[in-house]
Every structure is written in C-alpha cells, then in structure tokens.
Simulated assay, not measured.
Amino acid sequence: MPAPVIVDAARTPYGKRGGVLASWHPAELLGLAQADLCKRAGIDPAEIGEIIGGCVTQAGEQAGHIVRTAWLHAGLPEETGATTIDAQCGSAQQSVHLVAAQIAAGAIDAGLACGVEAMSRVPLRANIGEGIGSPRPDSWAIDLPAQYEAADRIARRRGFTRAEIDAFGLRSQQRARAAWDAGRLDRQILPVPTADGGTMTVDEGLRETSMSALAGLRPILGDGLHTAGTASQISDGASAALLVEEGRARAIGLRPRARILAHCLVGAEPRYLLDGPVRAAERLLDRTGTTIADFDLFEVNEAFAAVPMSFARAHDVDPEKLNVNGGAIAVGHPVGSSGIRLLATIIDELERRDQTLGLVAVCAGGAMATGAVIERI
C-alpha cells in the first residue's frame, strides 16, 4: 500500500486585522505559499498530482475556487487538479488528511495541502448573503451556540475561573514571544514581501501583556469569562504542506520528515460547539492503541483559552507538553489556514527536541474537530 509522508509544512507570517497583509488579495497570498513551499522543498510543481486547500468564508475575493485560482495565478502547472474545501477552522488540517488519503489510495504520488483566510478583506459570515435565506431552516431546534457563548460554556463545564483563563492567555503570549526570540518558529515561515520593499517574517499579533492588563479587559459577553486577550486573533495568512508517497519521495531526493499514523474529522456536542478536540483525541487513541502518556507534544488550537484547557483537563495532559510555543491567542488564527500552522509547529518542535510522537487537534464550527497523530521520521 502506498505510504504518504510529510516532506514539509510552512506558512506565511500571520498579519493582524488591517495590518501588513491586509493589502494582499487572498489568491495572491495563497499562491505565494503554494509556490514557495514547492521551491523550498525542492519539488517540481509538475510532480504535484492534486492540491486540496481550505477556506472558510468562500465569498467575494475568496469565492470561485480560490485554491485553483491561486495556483494558476502563481504561474503553476495548469494540469494540476485542485479542490477547495470548507471544514470550518479544521479546513487546512482536513486538507492534509485528504491529500494523505489520495496518496494512500494510489490516486496520486504527490499532493499539496493548503489553506488561506484574508479576514481583513473577507470577514467571517460574509458568505451569508442578503435576500437568499438563512443557512438554518425555520424548524431548526438544535442548541448550537455562537462561538463566544460556547467558549464560556466549556469554561463553566470544566470549572475554570476568569483568573485561570487569563493565566492561559498570558502563557500563550509569553511562550510565543520566547519561541520567536529563540528562533524556534523561523523554519515554518515563508517570507512575504511588503509594500515598503522589505520582507515580513514575524507574526504581527504578538503583544506585551500581564495578568493585571488581562484582568482589566471586558468580557466578550456581559457575564462571560473570555476577553480579547484570551480569544484567537482575527488574522490574515496562508499555509501549505507537501505530502509525497514515501518511495517516490526518496526516489526524487526528498527527505520525509513525518507521517500521519491516524487522522479524523469528528462531530462534537453541539451544546459546547468547540469542545471537539476532546472527542477527536478519544477517536485517535482508540484507533492507534496509544495513551496520552505515549505523546511527547500536543498542539490544540487556541480558538479560545478554554478549548485547549478543556482538552488538557479531560485527558490529564501535562501543560509542559501543550502548545509549548504559544498559539492562536498570540500569533493569530486565519481560520482556513491554521491547521497546517499547528502541523508545522509540532513537526519542527519534535525535530528540535529529538522526540517522536505528537497530536494535533483543531475545534471547528458546526461542532466538529479535526485531529491527527503525527510521528516524526
């Protein structure tokens, strides 16, 4: 059976809302990630059998099959097939899963997974147009809350206090700053040219903060527990990952870095919307016969602080193994792109520590979550 391996995974720096990347059309930004990753990995783009990419808000500049538009606009081979998907915040990670499955099925020998979201230019929910109805029928009776309410429900479910949530937000910023200062995130970055002739190589979302500063922020909801300091940032960015059949990779001189031992897209409890990483891990542990103690590192997307906190409490995860280089609270969350950022982060960190096994999970709209077990080669 063909064996897919991950050869490389990287992303653009993430721009803050209205920041440096707000001037980039999302197809240009994604095309840069697609082309530059192929160049960096040392693969001829003609080898790529198919591209699968995620984008959540497929409207306006992100409509009309953005994965294909970006590929063609970047001057890449017209023969390459392309698919654009929406698995909400799990879109980029699910793109990796689908490319891996295409290789394992023998349909292609090499594929590119990717993701993009230009949230400054195409806001969330911009694809819900006027005068064409609601996504939910009038008979809808499922308790599926807005993300802010869901985050607070998760926090109350697990018994987290506002101070504990603020402490997690502070930790994310501190860990991300330390990671950047130590150069631990450099490898995952695909530089982006800027309008002034320079190059953007660092995330814009990093900010100095403290427990007292976080304590002074108003909750997103009136009686809520999360604030702007403990929620993911609205961001712009793109990402890409190259997967190749292992024998083919070695034949053309590419070094495999990791393999996916198991992956999933699961449905979660609608009432809690974002608590899906807990269930995704349960599925992955069952399918691989592993335990939490077998894992060296965990990357769980910080949509809100309560999401990785809930994952850690439910599975008794050592906080020193969880999001060790910070997360979306600090660096940002361009929703269609983030899953590959987590993948790149965990592969780089496993290599740096000379460790082997990692778990990546992303909560997603519609009460879903993506998850994968990653083994460094």
Rank of each mutant, 00 (worst) to 15 (best):
364 A>M: 12
189 I>C: 02
81 G>L: 11
164 E>I: 11
110 A>K: 13
105 A>C: 09
252 I>L: 00
167 A>I: 00
11 R>Q: 11
25 H>K: 12
109 D>G: 15
36 D>K: 15
330 A>M: 11
163 A>E: 15
122 V>L: 04
71 W>E: 09
48 I>K: 05
172 S>K: 03
357 L>R: 14
328 A>S: 14
40 R>Y: 07
335 V>L: 15
348 D>M: 01
1 M>V: 11
59 A>C: 11
343 L>R: 02
139 S>G: 10
75 G>W: 01
26 P>S: 04
347 I>Q: 00
102 Q>E: 14
166 D>M: 03
206 L>H: 04
272 Y>Q: 06
122 V>K: 04
356 T>A: 14
245 E>F: 06
127 N>E: 10
228 A>T: 11
196 D>P: 05
48 I>P: 09
371 G>P: 09
88 Q>F: 14
150 A>Y: 02
132 I>C: 14
31 G>R: 13
29 L>H: 08
350 L>K: 02
214 L>R: 00
294 D>T: 04
53 G>V: 13
111 G>H: 09
61 E>V: 01
26 P>M: 02
282 E>S: 15
1 M>Q: 10
40 R>C: 09
292 I>G: 05
300 V>T: 10
248 R>L: 01
27 A>G: 08
19 G>C: 01
353 R>D: 05
82 A>L: 04
245 E>V: 03
358 G>W: 05
35 A>T: 09
